[in-house]
Design a protein around this nucleic acid. Structure first.
Lengths: 128, 128
DNA sequence: CTTTGTCACTTGCTATTCGCAAGTGACGTG
DNA sequence: CACGTCACTTGCGAATAGCAAGTGACAAAG
């Protein structure tokens, strides 16, 4: 019998009841929020589109993050055509609700990190 | 000759000019924002205090994160007593300006992750 | 003045994850 | 049927995480 290896994914869940810790367990890594950014601001939906973003996410990492985002209910995946079958990824309401978090990151970076691009105001004003 | 190994810290800097990517390069991991939370909301200042937080950060990770936070100007370290010499860590203005990011994470988690603790309203209202 | 204790890290070591590159399978086209 | 594209998988070396034990500075106890 092969001893079942302990599963410890990107973040062990339930590190605490702290809302910040719980948020980080879902999106607290270097790539996940960039995928969400692409979905939220860049209108990206297809696997190949995410790969083209300037940060250059590796394809295996992208596949993993999309899977995790789907499992955690931040993103939904569904077919939008057949022959060949293709799927698109979209933010769920739970995912789009992260908008204020990203917006505040943008404000913070624009204020404190020189060289960061200031997005057009309409993009960051309010959620509809 | 040993070939000099490529230094690639927690996040390669300058992945892009995107403000979100740049923010994540500084605080986009599982532990950094928890240290900032402890500084911002829990009034912690000393090395040993951070170790006591319920998520249980390992001591070597804590030392590394504090060093990086100091290097990136989010946290300052200074002696507050001698015999024995002790240092305290504090958020710089750049660090305290992350307040809105954490606040929105709290709101998001309270809305979408059952079981997360709702902080007393005064704690999350406004920055002074 | 030797022992014990505390604090703030540091080091060693293994498990896990990252990330580059190459591979795979399902189509579609020529 | 050869070739190309898209959407992932897989292999594997390198980097990071995290547990546990160690270190050095200093204080108080005996």
């Amino acid at each position: 019998m092969k001893p079942r290896k302990k599963k410890r994914r990107l973040a062990a869940l339930d590190r605490s009841t702290c809302p910040i810790a719980n948020t980080l367990d879902l999106v607290g890594d270097k790539w996940t929020l960039l995928v969400i950014r692409d979905l939220m601001f860049m209108g990206k939906r297809l696997y190949g589109e995410f790969l083209l973003s300037p940060e250059g996410i590796p394809s295996n990492i992208l596949a993993d993050r999309l899977k995790r985002l789907e499992e955690t209910g931040l993103v939904s995946k569904k077919p939008y055509q057949k022959n060949p079958i293709r799927h698109e990824y979209r933010l769920t309401p739970k995912g789009t609700d992260l908008f204020p978090v990203l917006r505040e990151m943008i404000f913070w970076a624009n204020k404190h990190i020189p060289g960061t691009v200031v997005p057009p105001p309409g993009l960051v004003k309010r959620k509809p």
